[in-house]
Design a protein around this nucleic acid. Structure first.
Lengths: 339, 339
DNA sequence: GCTGTTTCTGTAAACGTTTACACAGGTCCT
DNA sequence: AGGACCTGTGTAAACGTTTACAGAAACAGC
């Protein structure tokens, strides 16, 4: 591995000069600069990121802590994040699937010193765990975390509002028995979406019935199972709100297997509005959250915090949702969007 | 930021001793060990990954270079990779969306020195670019790259065989006019799948007709467009092989919009067998490649190369495919798999 | 009591950079 | 001529570790 010393020796200058050339800093004679560059190219010298980081205390990396990255949702978040990071000449250290507190702490420690900032998207994390395991100086952006602290930047999807609006929409079309397929237990998103559903049901004349709330795990197969069970309920619900699109897709599959027409016999809606939603049969109505933008915004916020450490003001932002109404909820023939 | 020196001072020992304690190496008095640990915990000391890496020349990181990570395919590869890496206490540095040679080189240089090994999944990369931009000592695994060199470990999907088998399958059910929706131009996977399709068409009595080969971009919307154009061909093809599942999903949507029954009027098959395939309407027949396993295998191979640098033998492996036959190709009512 | 071995610990160099500081030589003003 | 100020360069410390080497203490064998 060729180092700055090799270049310096070969070019007949000191390492300081080589460093100056590569960082475009301080005055260097044009002729010297040329010679150093020439030698460097010839030796295929690439400055060591490690040495540099150790000296400057910057890593040009940002960490991304994700839960289980099933399905299209996380793939979209990641895509948005990576694009934004890359444009800013940062790169991404990704770590996923942290279910228990133990695993999260290990991941947090691993990131420590390796990254200039951290985006954390983890349903089960608390302010204490963060404070315990992170240096206070490390910028952090929380994505959809249930941490009510103004010590951190936070970006949250309006889970409650979106679920409320979609449920209200279903009710407004005459449905009374609207079922919900819930998300993973103890999951913040799941809880908020459920709350939105319940409040809308109460306010707009939905029939309140515990049996209409079916358990789910945010996966296609759990949506499939839930839909099957739902058909056994009597009287049968006339509409179903799935807490995410994966489960809606599973439900759609189950209903089709049972010969139930969507939306004619049962209306269906999801949450997330993944790209594939508009290509399903029938096209899936969903709560649009701008997944890609979520990734973009997270990185942008983090980079601002990293670059303007002293002036940066921490913010807790709730991102609004829209309804993407398509065929599956039965209210329209063409796609439309409602804010 | 608290360093090894702080711990050493506070515990009344030298930094060497602290280091020994944290690495469980060399003899250290039990009492000393206890005290050092105690002080470290109290000070919340975490060894600096940077300092450590600089000294040991290991980073405990592996790089993952991906193309545009659209859709479920890459999300699955990434999931497999991350799980495997994490189990081995490595973490992943991810970089995606490298279209031109320029961007790839930049990404390669960025990775340099930051990772112990590299998994590269890039349709348009050549051996020369790799040799130019990477130290020869860095272990590399190529995933689905069109690089015919035994200087690198390589994992390739049997694109040709899978496409051949699926086309043959469609032909075996009486179809003569089987169309293909091609993948991105100059893409290795796309080319190989096309080759498999053509050879099968020739060998098993397909009707050869240039118009049956429609351009596509591996995206849902390009599949949608291709299917629409396909309907204008006369006589109309009776079966369509999409070069990946995303395009098959787009095609399915287009056919439905035009009121064409799948598989009754037109049979359809995809490639990749993404998890969602079995939840579509109709369920999608596809070429199964074990995406998750692809990620797992790649990391496993790389880790072997990293850990047994001297004894490791480079291998070029072609992963076999299976046919996942479901409803969309019209040959069966229930799911079945053919090797 | 000497030598040899074992156990524990410290000193210092090395890893590859950046950067504060010093200094030499030149130019420009007064 | 003497100072003030540039330009170009080198020296050396710093960043946080690991580790080869050396040395001190204790203890056994003779």
């Amino acid at each position: 591995m060729v180092t700055i010393k090799d270049v310096a020796r070969e070019a007949g200058v000191s390492i300081a000069t080589v460093s100056r050339v590569f960082n475009n800093v301080g005055p260097v004679d044009e002729e010297t600069r040329r010679r150093v560059r020439q030698v460097a190219r010839q030796l295929k010298y690439v400055p060591s990121a490690l040495g540099r980081s150790l000296s400057t205390k910057k890593t040009d990396a940002i960490g991304l802590l994700l839960p289980d990255l099933f399905g299209e949702f996380f793939s979209e978040v990641l895509r948005g994040s990576d694009q934004t990071a890359q444009q800013a000449h940062y790169h991404l250290v990704v770590s996923s699937s942290h279910n228990n507190r133990e695993a999260i702490e290990a991941a947090l420690r691993m990131m420590r010193g390796r990254v200039d900032g951290l985006v954390i998207m983890s349903p089960h994390i608390d302010a204490e765990t963060l404070n315990e395991n992170l240096p206070h100086s490390l910028p952090v952006v929380l994505l959809n975390c249930y941490v009510q602290s103004d010590k951190f930047d936070a970006l949250n999807i309006d889970n409650y509002g979106g679920a409320f609006a979609m449920t209200q929409h279903l009710l407004s079309h005459g449905h009374r028995r609207v079922a919900i397929i819930k998300g993973t237990e103890h999951n913040f998103d799941a809880a908020e979406r459920l709350r939105g559903y319940r409040d809308a049901m109460r306010q707009f004349g939905g029939e309140l019935d515990d049996r209409l709330e079916l358990p789910g795990l945010f996966s296609e197969s759990s949506g499939y199972d839930a839909a099957k069970r739902l058909l056994a309920i009597s009287p049968r619900p006339t509409a179903v709100f799935a807490s995410n699109d994966s489960m809606a897709i599973g439900a759609l599959s189950a209903l089709r297997d049972e010969g139930i027409q969507v939306p004619e016999q049962i209306a269906l809606a999801g949450f997330d509005d993944v790209p594939i939603a508009s290509f399903l049969t029938p096209t899936l109505s969903s709560v649009q959250v701008g997944i890609h933008q979520l990734g973009v915004k997270a990185i942008e916020t983090l980079l601002h915090a990293v670059r303007h450490k002293n002036t940066h003001r921490k913010q807790q932002v709730v991102l609004p949702t829209k309804l993407s109404l398509r065929e599956s909820c039965g209210c329209t023939n063409s796609t439309s969007t409602i804010s």
